[in-house]
């Protein structure tokens, strides 16, 4: 078998199918997007080369920067919410009753499609008949806010839905990492008289630091290109108060058929994501691998 693996022809044979697919379906379109970004093109007719005009327009487009700000807020929020997920996972991974059931409960949102989740939260947030406002009214709040119609609140209302949507995904990652820790270390700490909080904070969390870093990158990148829930729940409104980069790009490309400009936004988003990912890796880089 080793012989097979060292044969260059076989190596090429193994990697080629996947490579071709990735090149054709991922990198090819990325290059094309970069190319379209230099064009004035409505998606149907002829293309005109306009150089960097789309990017010049982009830099001056206040609506774009507003949506970029929302995307970054979303990224910060998602990163912070990782702490909540981590705490929940620590509790679940401990020996508490019913953790099996709870784990499944947290996982269920992950099984729903984004559109279903969006519809669900639209119903919850309905200003007059919704669950949330009915609850607030029985608690004595007069004139509860119209969550998705209020430009000052809409973004946060959507954040909460996203927090709920991704709970299962991150909790399962943390949970698996925590379950993979060697029992002996925890026992040793117990014998030394460490409290559960000390064990969690000083032993478990540092030991899964690698996983945490990966989830931070996932959360940030995922937020920057976030689209579906927002598109269904508000369409970026009201008045652009919940517009993010991806929804703005969609609007430009498929809403008003400005594919050149839409592609420029997409390419810019790719650059932003690459830079942010690199920065995140850089800032969270650690010196050495953990060895048990």
């Amino acid at each position: 078998m080793n012989k097979v693996m060292s044969n260059k022809v076989v190596i090429a044979l193994y990697t080629l199918p996947a490579l071709i697919l990735i090149l054709a379906l991922i990198y090819g379109p990325i290059l094309l997007t970069g190319y379209y970004g230099l064009m004035d093109w409505n998606g149907i007719g002829a293309m005109t080369f306009i150089g960097l005009d789309n990017y010049v327009e982009l830099v001056q487009d206040s609506k774009f920067w507003e949506s970029a700000l929302h995307s970054f807020l979303l990224a910060i929020f998602s990163t912070l919410s990782l702490a909540i997920y981590l705490i929940i996972s620590l509790i679940l991974a401990g020996k508490i009753k019913g953790s099996n059931l709870l784990r499944k409960i947290y996982l269920i949102p992950m099984l729903l499609s984004s559109v279903a989740i969006a519809q669900l939260w639209i119903k919850i947030y309905d200003p007059n008949n919704g669950m949330l406002n009915s609850l607030l009214q029985t608690l004595g709040v007069e004139n509860p806010p119209a969550w998705l119609a209020d430009p000052n609140l809409v973004l946060y209302a959507i954040f909460v839905a996203i927090l709920w949507q991704y709970a299962g995904f991150y909790i399962i990652i943390y949970y698996a990492a925590l379950k993979g820790l060697p029992e002996s270390l925890i026992e040793a700490a117990k014998i030394d008289g460490a409290t559960p909080i000390q064990i969690a904070y000083k032993i478990k969390v540092p030991l899964i630091a690698g996983v945490i870093k990966v989830t931070i990158v996932l959360a940030i990148v995922g937020s920057l290109k976030y689209f579906d829930l927002i598109y269904v729940m508000t369409g970026g409104g009201p008045n652009g108060a919940s517009e993010v980069i991806a929804s703005y790009m969609y609007k430009k490309a498929f809403g008003i058929y400005d594919f050149g400009y839409g592609s420029a936004i997409a390419f810019f988003l790719l650059l932003i994501t690459l830079v942010v990912t690199w920065l995140t890796r850089k800032l969270t880089a650690s010196e050495d691998e953990i060895q048990y």
Binding site: I122, D126, P127, L148, A149, G237
Partner: peptide, 12 residues
Amino acid sequence: FLNGFNGLGNDE
């Protein structure tokens, strides 16, 4: 107009 109209779709 209906309370929260800017956040409600036509179907709602």
